[in-house]
Design a protein around this nucleic acid. Structure first.
Length: 555
RNA sequence: UGGGGCGUGGCCAAGUGGCAAGGCGCGGGACUUUGGAUCCCGUAUUCGGAGGUUCGAAUCCUCCCGCCCCAACCA
């Protein structure tokens, strides 16, 4: 794993502030999710930046829910988000906040702006407002209600709060500049009427603040010094600054960075929601999803995700990080931590014809060659074994080191066997392979000869059956966002379910969520949702690097 | 054609006037009872392009090209 956090342009800005004393030497950040969906790995990048800044500069980071739109938000999402942030390894301490905590203060400040002539109540419909806002190249025109008196605005705004007007009939707008090239400054809406109960404030409010009006002021109230957000908010910074200046309150610094895009997946909550609601995946925690819940269920560790976030860097250029980097991070982490086991995914019977019937040996197997302290375990060996279908071929391709008629291979921790015969079923598929073993080669010792292939195996008499789920990328193309309809790029082979896998008996009571390396097959995790005692289900987190596959592909 | 950003190898990304870090990937080799891991070696005469300033430019200036974001009572 990488060492100390690398510097980046945000850290340079913070360090400069620390040097000049801009915020009195303090660093306060916040992670501000809207509870309208699950967190994904793009959020993990933001979380690592926000909490990492606080950690490394002796500050603190708040978790603040941006809950200003009750029509899209829910408690389920709030709970999931808190769970995911904690799982990733971060702690907001006492600082769990909600924009809704500040609704009353925000309301008071809105009246203050009305009184100073900087906000007014507008009666225009959505369509009228859109029409008068102008376009990218044409200036907007003032609303006919832009010059109402302070008294009238105040009275109307109080009646909006009191619920006297129907949804959508009025808004409170900041009076800024309808001709600005920055459309955010063309009298942005501050409040809209929504007679929708809020998950935290119930029916206390009929008007709800817009993001721009709530966000900066919430930062200010909390004493946030550095408000880190993504690039699309760059145009909002002048408005962020305008509100704070108009109110004359503590003024944090907003800094924007480029959001993470990952190849072969989508990252927008809108699209992820479509996948969930359309039944294209089994839920927000489907192991194919880029959500933290999905990655966790897939077997990813929080450490590997943090390492990934560290390696991708922080900059302002649009980017699409290759999935291969994420996979590298989890392999590297699990290589040193996951215990090794033998599991045969697609079983083929192997019979050792000169091995005594009924004999069982308990062989010693190393739990983790990367970690001697992980010790060893016993694995039963017998006359009939399961091996991988791919490990036998009637006609061996070039450089194929596995079993074929007359060839010798080593059975991991066992003996060297030589293929003498095999049977083929009516469909032409190999149904059984027969070998003889050399009793002098216990423990896999090659006894001086050159044996290039080593196969994993499971004793047929002791095998535990399991379901194993293998995954490919959710999308068949690297950039599904570039597609007309991103769903058309979905990979039909993203999930394969193998029902007859055979595991070595030590796996029988594997705990939900526990991770192993199935030798030569990859890293696997006991599915925390679908696995049950007596009915094991494993998810493949990621395969091992496979140089044989490359050789095959090259032909 | 308004405003705001961004362009360094296949993908990220350092670099802040002194002669192109690093990671992933890819290719080759060593080693190996996981075709895993580990270890070596290689992989941008060039920084979107063209001019200019300078002894010297990815870094400064000018012009041009390309890409992204903004016209929700979403965040």
């Amino acid at each position: 794993m990488s060492d100390a956090p690398r510097s980046n342009f945000i850290r340079e800005i913070v360090e400069e502030h620390l040097r000049t004393g801009r915020f009195g030497g303090k660093v306060v950040t916040r992670f501000p999710p809207e509870p309208n969906g699950y967190l994904h790995i793009g959020h993990a990048k933001a979380i690592c930046i926000d909490f990492g800044l606080a950690r490394d500069y002796g500050g603190r980071c708040h978790l603040r829910f941006d809950d200003t739109n009750p029509t899209k938000e829910s408690q389920e999402y709030v709970d999931a988000i808190m769970n995911d942030v904690r799982w990733l390894g971060f702690d907001w301490g006492e600082h769990l906040h909600h924009a809704s905590d500040y609704f009353e203060q925000l309301y008071e400040w809105a009246e203050q702006l009305i009184k100073s002539g900087k906000a007014y109540v507008d009666d225009q419909t959505v369509e009228e407002m859109r029409e008068s806002r102008g376009t990218l190249t044409e200036a907007g025109r003032p609303s006919p209600h832009r010059d109402r008196s302070v008294e009238e605005n105040l009275e109307l705004f109080r009646r909006m709060r009191a619920g006297e007007f129907p949804d959508g009939s009025k808004t409170l707008r900041a009076k800024i500049d309808m001709t600005s090239g920055n459309i955010n400054l063309r009298d942005p809406v501050m409040y809209r009427i929504r007679k929708t109960p809020h998950q935290r404030t119930g029916d206390a409010w009929r008007i709800y603040p817009m993001y721009d009006w709530a966000h900066g002021q919430s930062d200010s109230i909390e004493g946030v010094t550095h408000s880190i957000c993504t690039l699309e908010y760059e145009d909002h910074r002048p408005l962020y600054d305008w509100y704070l200046d108009a109110l004359g309150i503590f003024h944090p610094q907003q800094i924007e960075f480029a959001r993470l895009n990952l190849s072969h997946t989508v990252m927008s909550k809108r699209k992820l929601l479509q996948l969930v609601e359309g039944g294209f995946v089994s839920g927000w925690d489907d192991p194919r999803m880029p959500t933290l819940a999905g990655l966790r269920r897939r077997g990813y560790t929080p450490e590997s995700i943090r390492d990934f976030c560290e390696r991708i860097g922080v900059a302002k250029a649009d980017n699409v990080v290759e999935l291969a980097l994420l996979e590298h991070c989890i392999r590297e982490d699990l290589n040193t931590r996951a215990q090794r086991r033998m599991a045969v995914l697609r079983p083929l019977k192997l019979v050792i014809t000169n091995y005594p019937e009924g004999k069982v040996e308990q062989l010693d197997a190393v739990n983790n060659p990367e970690d001697p302290s992980a010790g060893t375990r016993k694995v039963p060996f017998g006359r009939e074994l399961w091996i991988e279908q791919d490990d036998f071929k009637e006609v061996a391709p070039k450089k194929y080191f596995r079993l074929t008629l007359g060839a010798e291979v080593r059975l991991r921790y066992g003996y060297i066997v030589k293929c003498t015969d095999f049977s083929v079923g009516p469909d032409g598929r190999v149904t059984e392979v027969r070998c003889t073993y050399d009793p002098a080669t216990v423990g896999g010792d090659s006894g001086g000869r050159t044996v290039k292939g080593t196969l994993h195996w499971v004793s047929a008499a002791h095998a535990v059956e399991s379901e194993v789920r293998l995954y490919e990328t959710l999308f068949a193309t690297p950039k599904p966002d570039d597609e007309e309809d991103f769903k058309a790029a979905l990979n039909p082979n993203s999930l394969s379910v193998l029902r007859g896998a055979r595991l070595e008996p030590s796996l029988k009571d594997a705990a939900p969520g526990s991770r192993f390396q199935f030798e030569r097959n990859g890293y696997f995790c006991v599915d925390p949702r679908d696995s049950a005692p007596g009915r094991l289900v494993f998810n493949r987190t990621v395969g091992l690097r496979d140089t044989w596959a490359k050789i095959e592909r090259a032909g």
